[in-house]
Lab assay of single mutants.
Amino acid sequence: MDSLVVLVLCLSCLLLLSLWRQSSGRGKLPPGPTPLPVIGNILQIGIKDISKSLTNLSKVYGPVFTLYFGLKPIVVLHGYEAVKEALIDLGEEFSGRGIFPLAERANRGFGIVFSNGKKWKEIRRFSLMTLRNFGMGKRSIEDRVQEEARCLVEELRKTKASPCDPTFILGCAPCNVICSIIFHKRFDYKDQQFLNLMEKLNENIKILSSPWIQICNNFSPIIDYFPGTHNKLLKNVAFMKSYILEKVKEHQESMDMNNPQDFIDCFLMKMEKEKHNQPSEFTIESLENTAVDLFGAGTETTSTTLRYALLLLLKHPEVTAKVQEEIERVIGRNRSPCMQDRSHMPYTDAVVHEVQRYIDLLPTSLPHAVTCDIKFRNYLIPKGTTILISLTSVLHDNKEFPNPEMFDPHHFLDEGGNFKKSKYFMPFSAGKRICVGEALAGMELFLFLTSILQNFNLKSLVDPKNLDTTPVVNGFASVPPFYQLCFIPV
Rank of each mutant, 00 (worst) to 15 (best):
K160W: 05
M129K: 14
Q356E: 07
D360C: 14
S336N: 12
E325R: 13
K383T: 06
L380R: 11
L391P: 02
L201P: 02
V436C: 07
T66H: 02
R377M: 07
V319R: 01
S162C: 15
V60R: 14
M443P: 02
D463M: 04
Q356P: 02
N236V: 00
P101Q: 11
T159Y: 11
S23V: 13
C486L: 07
H230N: 10
G46N: 12
S51I: 08
D49G: 12
L413Q: 03
V355C: 10
Y189N: 04
K235N: 11
G79M: 02
Q340K: 11
V113S: 12
N466Y: 10
F482N: 15
F126S: 06
L287S: 01
I452T: 01
I50K: 09
G96F: 08
I215F: 15
T299K: 07
L128S: 12
K249P: 05
E326L: 01
V177P: 00
K421T: 09
R342T: 06
N133W: 06
G98D: 13
G40F: 03
A321G: 12
Y61E: 03
I452S: 00
P63L: 02
F94D: 04
F65G: 01
K28I: 12
N403T: 09
C486I: 07
R144T: 11
T371S: 12
S24I: 15
P101H: 11
L362M: 08
V436G: 10
P382S: 05
S58D: 06
K273A: 14
Q356D: 01
M198L: 11
G111K: 00
Q340N: 15
A350H: 00
V319W: 09
G475L: 07
F219P: 06
T469I: 14
N258V: 07
R97D: 00
K138W: 11
G437T: 02
A86N: 05
Q193V: 13
V462S: 08
G117R: 08
T450H: 00
E104Y: 15
L447P: 00
D188W: 01
S336R: 08
I47L: 14
L77V: 14
W120Y: 14
D373E: 06
W20S: 12
S58G: 10
V436F: 14
I244M: 10
P346S: 07
R342M: 09
L287F: 08
V60C: 13
L54K: 03
L90Q: 15
E272L: 08
K158R: 11
P221Q: 12
V38I: 13
V355F: 06
S115A: 14
V323D: 01
P481T: 02
K72N: 11
C179R: 00
L467T: 03
G431S: 06
V436Y: 06
E400F: 07
L361N: 03
K52E: 11
P337A: 11
A350M: 01
T371D: 15
A369N: 15
L90G: 14
F183M: 07
S303G: 08
F239N: 09
E81D: 13
N418Q: 11
N455T: 10
F183L: 06
T348Q: 02
F226V: 12
P409Q: 01
M443E: 02
S365D: 05
R139G: 10
R21C: 14
L362P: 00
G475K: 05
V319H: 11
L201S: 01
K315G: 03
K420N: 07
G442Y: 13
C151F: 15
I264R: 01
I42T: 10
N258H: 12
N56R: 14
E81H: 08
A173Y: 00
Q356V: 11
F110E: 14
T371L: 08
F412P: 00
V8H: 07
H344P: 04
Q454G: 05
K232R: 11
D165Q: 01
G475I: 05
C435P: 00
T302P: 04
R342W: 05
C13T: 13
L128T: 14
V8Y: 12
S286W: 09
N107F: 04
N176V: 00
F126A: 06
S343R: 14
L388T: 03
S18R: 14
P163F: 05
P37C: 03
L36S: 07
P367E: 09
F263R: 01
C338K: 13
Y68T: 04
E85Y: 08
Y308L: 02
K158C: 06
I99Y: 15
I389R: 00
S343C: 14
C216Q: 12
D165P: 01
K459S: 08
N218C: 15
L29Q: 04
V6G: 13
F456P: 01
I213C: 11
I215P: 04
P337Q: 00
I452G: 01
F376R: 03
